[in-house]
């Protein structure tokens, strides 16, 4: 642990980020990682899309994490996303009842991912959104973005982030495909590049 002389609220220097690399696939993804919504919950939404590189080619080895509040806007403090069987050490996964708010999914060979979660509620000044963290081979530091769901135009118009990004706001708002299904492509570079965020 290294300390600077200055003290203050940030007196320890951070550990640098590194790429997740190509070989995390047997370690990080888990069965049911994309099924975040409790079984049969009426507020379930499906979000899905591709992760694309600067030439528009889908990434078959990207990892997407989703994190969002309940439909009433409260944030779960519930564990159990990756429950294990204490007898065999095997994977039990979610119990289908509790909502942890967090999920993880690897893109498939076509570069496609999907997740089923609960429709997020609004918090603070923001329109409702899901927080997204993207990892991939070649990506030295993960990327944050947000999935805003379409529908409530007044809420979207009042969102502080969407108001700031001008004509790029469309990259943050999912497409409505009907039946509670929403399309959200993540473009890492180039034409239609997704708005990525840094938190300070």
């Amino acid at each position: 642990m290294t300390k600077t002389e200055t003290g203050g609220p940030e007196h320890v220097l951070p550990t640098p980020s590194h790429t997740v690399g190509p070989f995390y696939g047997y370690a990080l993804p888990f069965r049911g990682g994309e099924d975040i919504a409790p079984l049969g919950h009426p507020d379930t939404v499906t979000v899905h899309g591709h992760v694309l590189d600067g030439e528009g080619r889908p990434l078959p080895d990207a990892l997407v994490e989703l994190w969002g509040p309940r439909p009433d806007g409260t944030v779960p403090r519930v564990d159990g996303s990756i429950r294990r069987d204490p007898a065999t050490g095997g994977h039990l996964g979610r119990n289908g009842v509790e909502f942890t708010g967090w999920g993880r999914v690897q893109t498939d060979a076509d570069g496609h991912w999907y997740a089923r979660t609960l429709r997020p509620g609004a918090r603070g000044d923001s329109a409702p959104y899901l927080s997204v963290c993207v990892f991939a081979r070649g990506l030295l530091v993960h990327l944050f973005t947000r999935i805003y769901l379409p529908g409530d135009e007044a809420a979207l118009a009042a969102d502080p982030l969407l108001a700031r990004v001008g004509d790029r706001r469309g990259t943050l708002i999912a497409g409505d495909e009907g039946g509670g299904t929403y399309r959200f492509d993540i473009r890492l570079q180039g034409e239609g590049e997704t708005v990525f965020l840094e938190f300070r």
């Binding site: 509040p69 982030l161 890492l188 570079q189 965020l197």
Partner: peptide, 25 residues
């Protein structure tokens, strides 16, 4: 080399978390 096509060219958009303590992030 794998980083060449997999990084954004646009600057990241900064979020000042002190302005909204309710952020889910």
């Amino acid at each position: 080399r794998s980083s060449v096509l997999r990084h954004p060219r646009q600057p990241l958009v900064a979020i000042d978390t002190a302005r909204d303590p309710e952020l889910v992030e």
